[in-house]
Amino acid sequence: MADTDKHAAQSKRAVRAFDIRTIIGTLLGIYGVILLLMGIFASDSDLEGSDGSSINLLTGITLLVVSAFFLTWVRLRPLLVAEGEEDASDAHIE
């Protein structure tokens, strides 16, 4: 990390982008949107077949909530380079 000193601001942004919380939040967010759309635009025959279509809808909404949790967490407690990592390690075990 020799270049962190030179481009402190830049690498801080890079650290946030690479923060695992951002990655989790983004992936679950994309999945949530796709499932939500699948749930909303399910055809009637899908709905008759099983309770499957409502599971797309429910899972989609849940994933969006979880995604929002992670993205908010990154905003509120960003990972600081070199110091303050203890802060980011607050146990969130839910």
């Binding site: 695992i20 989790i24 992936l27 309770d51 599971i55 899972t59 994933l63 979880v66």
Partner: peptide, 23 residues
């Protein structure tokens, strides 16, 4: 990092499966 990501995806897959199955 991939293990942590995997954890959330596998839960997102198996939890709804369990709920639908129970239903």
């Amino acid at each position: 990092y991939n293990e942590v990501l995997q954890f959330f995806v596998i839960v997102a897959a198996l939890l709804p499966l369990t709920i639908v199955g129970l239903h």
